[in-house]
């Protein structure tokens, strides 16, 4: 025989209990959600691929389309400074160490030494070039050269092209 007296105190307790239950429930809910659908996936090993597919762009056009496109449209892409020049080989056996974020002192300065020196004189010694220079897409100059329209047009001559 259970008797629950609906006193004010009991109701308050019940409400508190319900509130705690709700908070715990919502907490558990999000805990579960984050567990089942992680926001970020652990980056796994790089694809171990046979030699003929290591031209990075072939795959990365698909798996990191944004980055590849930024590269392609920016100066480094137009002048064909390819991924491996700055990032090295994923297996670490290339002529420079593999770096997802290239070290400016080691990599950028190989070509842009005068600019690095100039910038340091202006803004002091900063380890991070990237806070101003978005590394793939140069925000100011992206698309500066681009006039070529992707085409499969195959007529011998293309009147109206350009200009």
């Amino acid at each position: 025989m259970i008797t629950i007296s609906l006193t004010k105190k009991n109701m308050l307790l019940g409400a508190c209990g319900l509130f705690i239950l709700a908070v715990v429930g919502i907490g558990l809910f999000f805990l579960y959600l984050n567990f089942a659908f992680p926001v970020k996936h652990a980056t796994g090993t790089h694809l171990a691929v046979p030699d003929q597919y290591t031209d990075c762009v072939t795959c990365h056009t698909k798996v990191s389309a944004q980055v590849t496109q930024d590269w392609r449209e920016a100066k480094h892409g137009v002048t064909l400074v390819k991924c491996v020049v700055c990032h090295g080989e994923p297996d670490g056996k290339g002529s420079i160490p593999f770096m997802a974020t290239p070290d400016p002192k080691l990599i950028c300065s190989r070509c842009h030494d005068p600019a690095v020196v100039r910038m340091e004189a202006k803004y002091g010694n900063s380890a991070d070039c990237y806070s101003c220079h978005a590394y793939h897409q140069n925000p100011v100059h992206s698309n500066a050269y681009e006039t070529r329209v992707p085409t499969t047009q195959t007529t011998l001559d293309q009147p109206g092209q350009g200009f």
Partner: peptide
């Protein structure tokens, strides 16, 4: 992405 970088201290 920097998390994935390896060998940086040695390079520096």
């Amino acid at each position: 992405t920097a998390l994935a970088a390896i060998g940086l201290p040695g390079v520096a």
